[in-house]
Nucleic acid binder design. Structure first.
Lengths: 367, 367
DNA sequence: CCGGTGGATGTATGCGCATACATTCACGGC
DNA sequence: GCCGTGAATGTATGCGCATACATCCACCGG
């Protein structure tokens, strides 16, 4: 006994039932002050009786704007696409869970940025349509999305720049979290470099460290490059030698961080400080060091970057640089709306401030 | 030098440029096999040259389906709506961060469910449009959303049931995470009761506990009710007295969990086990107990529910019941598509399995 | 008592696309 | 050499709404 109607009622149905023209129906819904009380009343009754809901497509077509903003992410979770939907009736299983969970931070990132976009869109009466560009259909899907929204917020790495630029010819595009290149697009990002620089200068000045090493993430990722650059600037500003490359390179995962730390311990050459390119890596590093009997921050200082929840719950709590993920989404929408309002305005490159969180893993606070 | 065109090119522009009719343009894009190679070629060239992207609104209108699925959440973050967009140029600030972070799990929940919905939608060539129903515009926005999608996934608590039922007259609605009531809607939820029951039976049977107390969350929330019911069933099945109400009642936050634990410690009557209705609360409880010198699980066993990341990172790691949040979204979409395919099919009430994670806080594993 | 005025409502049209139907044309069979 | 056939393409229409413009009518001033 599902109650879904075979076909949705339209303005015409409402108009018939209310004994008015479709124009009056439309007016009651969009500009009520121009319609007499009587007609308004009858129309609203008809709307209620029929369960009428205006078609977004028709409205969008007539208004020449969809009322939605698109958010596109790179395929963080390509793998997850495999699992079939479980239809098991088993209500509860049980298992010993000794494993160290390694929740992908990317999920969190996606969720937070989406939240920011949705919030800012809401404030302007818009909706947010999200898509994770995966596999083959990747670029085609982005164009499809572009066709159904008023503007796009695209995370760096979602699609090749040339596709973005092409799409941008018809739909404004704001790129999140990558530095302005030569593309004619608006950008929003965080102060990766300055954040890392401030953190490292703190280690040098406040804790008097000198033997400071960088543990990178995936090579050539803009964020990683900027962080390493900030690291170098800090050293240079204090007259210390600047390495050409990170001491170690991971892939932003906790597991990889563990492996790297294991290598250091085995080789017996752990520096005074391990400055990691992200929190996940740092958490893995800390875990392995502690198991190997190396005290953090007693024997070695470890820091992260991102400011994820887990970094504030570890022992020791991780000193890190917090970047405002949801804020990225909000500001991206702000930039998008400005672009919509004035297509000829100069390109924007907004850099959001970060905050260095001094906690236990650098020795600033006691556990 | 922004490159956004003043108005998007249409099929007509493409047809003109390619020297064909709009029908041929449309065919090249939708059914390429019906068009000659020559025409196809010219059309694609024109599309590229003009940066043409089909209008989603027009397509939706003509096709009588939008190609999008709506996801609506209750207003977890009403408060956050206040902050203005920061336009600060300060790239990095610094602060000592002694506070215990209390990341709202609701954000995570929203992100995960959205992820599931988006993934399943993607597999069917659909997009996901999300909206958090806040404040005054709440119900109106839900209808607006309904008008622009082919189906809705609505989380319990987003809007009053009567609004849902009304909307469902024109757009299929699947309700997530609340038990089937009298509404003529499809439902998808997790096995809250059985999960909690299994966990508590484990505490009774395996750890031989008897003085087991329940720490609830917000009253009258379906999930909380079901969990408390499962708690009671476990006790009853072992011939123990079943309390009529939770020993304590929090609000699902970590902070509130702390306050409750403080009360117990001060009163000097801490039970053998504190079974919490969610992880956040349990984390707060554990923190305060430990600071008060009460050992967990040595002196008192504490358990949670939800299986959030933080529960696997605390010391001791929390024994809890993991519920598949992303899976909720995926299955909801699955149910939605079935409903779309057959409006007359019997109503569904899918219950997803949960998994009890036995870790350190119940004593199953050593820290 | 008539033209003017403004509020309420109706009529007609366009938004951009998909597609049913019509048309054209090349080709093969008779 | 004519007609049937089918592939390729064009023409016309509808999808559901917003809105410019036309119409109607009650009411006012002169």
């Amino acid at each position: 006994m599902a109650t879904t109607r075979s076909s949705r009622p339209t303005v015409y149905d409402v108009a018939d039932r209310a004994g008015v023209s479709i124009a009056t129906v439309s007016r009651v819904l969009r500009r009520p002050e121009t319609v007499s009380p009587g007609a308004t009343r009858r129309v609203l009754d008809a709307v209620r009786d029929l369960g009428y809901v205006p078609s977004g497509s028709a409205r969008g077509l007539a208004a020449r704007r969809s009322g939605a903003i698109g958010v596109a992410f790179p395929a963080f979770d390509d793998v997850a696409e495999i699992d079939p939907v479980p239809l098991s009736d088993v209500p509860a299983t049980m298992r010993l869970d000794p494993a160290e969970a390694a929740e992908p931070v990317t999920n969190l990132y996606m969720g937070e940025v989406t939240r920011g976009v949705e919030l800012e869109a809401w404030r302007h009466g818009l909706f947010a349509t999200v898509a994770v560009a995966r596999g083959e259909r990747r670029d085609a899907a982005l164009e499809d999305l572009a066709g159904r929204v008023d503007g796009l917020v695209v995370l760096a790495g979602t699609t090749p720049p040339e596709v973005l630029v092409r799409v941008a010819r018809s739909t404004p595009v704001v790129v999140v979290a990558s530095p302005r290149g030569e593309d004619p697009l608006d950008h929003v990002r965080t102060a990766n470099g300055p954040g890392m620089r401030a953190l490292v200068e703190h280690l040098l000045d406040h804790h008097g460290l000198r033997d400071v090493a960088f543990v990178g993430g995936v090579a050539d990722v803009p964020d990683d490059l900027e962080r390493f650059a900030g690291f170098g600037e800090a050293l240079a500003s204090r007259g210390l030698p600047v390495p050409a490359a990170p001491l170690l390179r991971g892939d932003f995962t906790e597991e990889r961080g563990r492996a790297l730390a294991r290598g250091l311990v085995d080789a017996g050459r752990v520096p005074e400080a391990l400055v990691c390119s992200n929190d996940q890596t740092a958490l893995g590093v800390v875990d392995v060091l502690q198991r190997a009997g190396v005290r953090v921050p007693g024997d070695v200082v470890v820091t992260g970057f991102d400011g994820i929840d887990a970094a504030g719950r570890s022992r020791p709590r991780l000193t890190t640089v917090h970047q405002p993920m949801a804020e990225l989404g909000r500001v991206a929408v702000d930039v998008l709306l400005r672009r919509l309002a004035d297509p000829a305005a100069p390109l924007e490159d907004r850099v959001l401030p970060v905050q260095v969180l001094l906690r236990e893993s650098c020795g600033c606070l006691r556990a």
